[in-house]
Design a protein around this nucleic acid. Sequence first.
DNA 1: ATAATTTTTGAAAACGTTTGCAAGGTGAAG
DNA 2: CTTCACCTTGCAAACGTTTTCAAAAATTAT
Lengths: 337, 337
Amino acid sequence: MVSGKSIKDVAKVAGVSISTVSRVLNDSQNVSSELKQKVLDAVQNLGYRSNTIARALKGMPTKTLGLLIPTIENPFFPSMVRGVQDEAHRNGYSVFLCNTDGSRIIEERQFKLLLDKKVDGIILVASKYTTRYLKNGMEFPIVMIDRYVNSPNFSYVTVDHTMGVRLAIEHLYSLGHRKIAFLGSKLLSSGARERFQSYKRYIEEFKMKFDDSLIVLGEYTYESGIKMVEELMKRKVKFDSILCGNDLIAFGVIEGLKNYGIRVPKDVSVVGYDDITFSSYHNPKLTTIRQPTYEVGQMATRIVIDMISGADRRVKHIKIEPSLVIRETTRKRGSEI
Amino acid sequence: MVSGKSIKDVAKVAGVSISTVSRVLNDSQNVSSELKQKVLDAVQNLGYRSNTIARALKGMPTKTLGLLIPTIENPFFPSMVRGVQDEAHRNGYSVFLCNTDGSRIIEERQFKLLLDKKVDGIILVASKYTTRYLKNGMEFPIVMIDRYVNSPNFSYVTVDHTMGVRLAIEHLYSLGHRKIAFLGSKLLSSGARERFQSYKRYIEEFKMKFDDSLIVLGEYTYESGIKMVEELMKRKVKFDSILCGNDLIAFGVIEGLKNYGIRVPKDVSVVGYDDITFSSYHNPKLTTIRQPTYEVGQMATRIVIDMISGADRRVKHIKIEPSLVIRETTRKRGSEI
DNA sequence: ATAATTTTTGAAAACGTTTGCAAGGTGAAG
DNA sequence: CTTCACCTTGCAAACGTTTTCAAAAATTAT
């Protein structure tokens, strides 16, 4: 009842063969307008909906995409996911969402599962394990988002973190800060690496004194943010501002600083990274580097779909520009600790 | 190449018929252990993976679920989604995630699309449109989460908001507050309605003076929270505490209050609702009613899967208990405005 | 007009499974 | 020894499409 009608029923009602029905439903070419109309009417009357499964079995596209992310519970991902979903739906695709939790086993299993389900393409945020199962010769539409493995064989779309970090440091510098601490992630992912290296690069480019002890590496979490300021305080090194690896860390940092009686931005300026939704709800509102995550997801999807349709098969390496959004956690340098 | 091997190849290698292969892959009954082993070996050697599409065409389950939510960008949903995904994956299911944005057109289209894709079951947060396409006689595994339509025909799992609101008011009452304002949603969804009605009920049950002008209804957003305190202030009514319809409103409320020089919790206590991740990162940390959203998603999934497998077809109406989590935005009543 | 060509149509073979049916085997009961 | 029942196995028919091929019809060229 739910499914019911098949192409056969349509054929019978329209008084034509199933091949004809199939043709008007697809090509719509080489079929007389008279028959075409009959078929269309029959389809209408019966409320016929073509069976995706059967088409898929004949090797037709399933109009289905797979999306592999660490976890949707990380507030960084929802808008990216939304970006791919919107673009996908706009083109008639549905998307399987999978959380890998950064586990090799899960990632690989989910990847295979998606292939089994005959998705037309896959979008994924790469991990250090990704290269293990992504064979280079693979003729399958795949694009990486956010984190990627640098390969001429695979497309990716991410954000220009070098620029992001420059924006942040430039801002802090212009505010008079010269002792900028970096509290980031010790992950080896493309994003974490780029941010860390760019920090070092721009500290030097702006002719500030580079100091190892101004750097603490931890995790991309609130709790880690708190821990990292503790570590920083323990070192008794002077700093007038902090660049954080992401917004979550920044929130933790602000909380951690509060525990030492250090006020933001009065005593210390803090800039985050990502601009997740909550950054503008936080108190004080977070100055941060905005990653256009929605656009990243959207563009990645645009690319897979082009690969699938054959409209454009070239591998693309895209870095979208981030922007600085100034709110309340940074201000002109005054006192120093 | 990606797919390649079929049951036919396995049959050839194992020296048996395809029916036999199919049988060991499914029933595993009525086939001699000798042949069974041969087949299993062949499967192993060839790296054969059964073709989901072909099985689906024969009416076998697709091991696929559909999940329909308003939008993943609402921080209330990610952990609920995670709950269903985890339970789904644990049982070998993949899940299609769809955002409806509360639009009738989209919701209905996505629902049909899921049916077309032959999902085995659907989990959805109901809207006022849901009843339009959900026919009562429908023999299809569906369960609603969070918001629901009250029907003996459909299962749902949600949270006991009556209890949630009682918890909140009880807490505020015990702190000495007697003028509790309610800033909630004007939505007609089950959740919004219950919260509002329970507010009225418990204000009276605790013998506090019920006052219409302590109530403002808006949207479930930060911005609306700000607007609602403005409205409240305009009314010049006295209040010593505020119960918010959700956490997002609460954040807005705290910000809005700040604009009037009113401090939380020193001057006014604020209680949120939901306990989204950020509530514990917010400054001050939000006292709120925790909805166990992960469990809601998980349990809903458990139920659909049971319906699918036939293990348990009964319709279930489940309300999970929320809890009060006391943090920094409430305190014993002192001054009053 | 007829022949040559093109267009429109339908029959039938796939795609990779599951499964009803019947054939062959094996063992127990008569 | 038969007979009967049951277990194991394979053949072939589905499931709902797309698509090749050839026939039929329509069009154009001669």
